[in-house]
C-alpha cells in the first residue's frame, strides 16, 4: 500500500479524549459567552429624564433659573427658552454658574456664557437640551435629547 493510504493514524483514545475535552470546552465556553450579556442592562433602571419645568410665564424674559435636582439651567431670552445641562462634559461633576460663564469644581474646566469650552480639560461644550411645550402648554425638558447650542424654544 502506498504511504498516502497509510497516514499516521490518530490513536483512537487520543481522538476520543480530545473530542471529549473539546466538547466540554465548547459547552462551557458557549454558555459563558451567552451569559456574558447578563451584566449589560437592556433597559436602564431609571426614571425618565423628561421633566416638566413650568409655564413659559414662570421664566420672564432675560432671566435664568438653575434647577438643582434636574441639573439644568433654564434661560429665557428674546428668542425663547433654552435649557443648558450643568453636567460637566469632562467627568460628570456639576458646574456652577460664574460671572464668566460656568466653572467645574472637579478639574477646573471653564465654559463661556453659552456653555462653549473656555479652558481646562473639558473635551466639548455643555450640552443644550431640547425644550418643548407639552399639550397642557407647560415646558418640557428632555435630558436625553441634545440640540445644537443656540436652539431656542419659541414661546
Amino acid at each position: 500500500m502506498s504511504e498516502r493510504l497509510k497516514p499516521e493514524p490518530l490513536p483512537r483514545r487520543d481522538f476520543l479524549g480530545l473530542a471529549g475535552l473539546w466538547s466540554a470546552a465548547v459547552a462551557i465556553g458557549g454558555s459563558l459567552i451567552g451569559m456574558s450579556r447578563l451584566p449589560k442592562p437592556s433597559v436602564l433602571p431609571e426614571a425618565g429624564r423628561r421633566f416638566r419645568i413650568g409655564r413659559p410665564e414662570d421664566f420672564p424674559d432675560g432671566t435664568e433659573e438653575i434647577l438643582t435636582a434636574e441639573k439644568v439651567l433654564v434661560r429665557s431670552g428674546p428668542q425663547g427658552i433654552a435649557a443648558i445641562s450643568l453636567v460637566c462634559t469632562h467627568l460628570g461633576c456639576i458646574v456652577s454658574r460664574e460671572s464668566a460663564g460656568f466653572g467645574c469644581p472637579c478639574h477646573g474646566s471653564a465654559f463661556g456664557q453659552n456653555g462653549e469650552v473656555g479652558g481646562g480639560p473639558a473635551p466639548r461644550g455643555l450640552r443644550w437640551l431640547e425644550v418643548s411645550r407639552g399639550v397642557d402648554g407647560r415646558l418640557v425638558v428632555d435630558a436625553d435629547r441634545e440640540v445644537a447650542p443656540g436652539t431656542w424654544c419659541q414661546v
Binding site: K40, P41, L44, P45, E46
Partner: peptide, 13 residues
C-alpha cells in the same frame, strides 16, 4: 460605563 454602573448615573445598580 454602563457595564460598571448598570445605569447612566451612579445609583442603586
Amino acid at each position: 460605563k454602563e457595564l460598571l454602573l448598570g445605569a447612566s448615573e451612579v445609583g442603586q445598580q
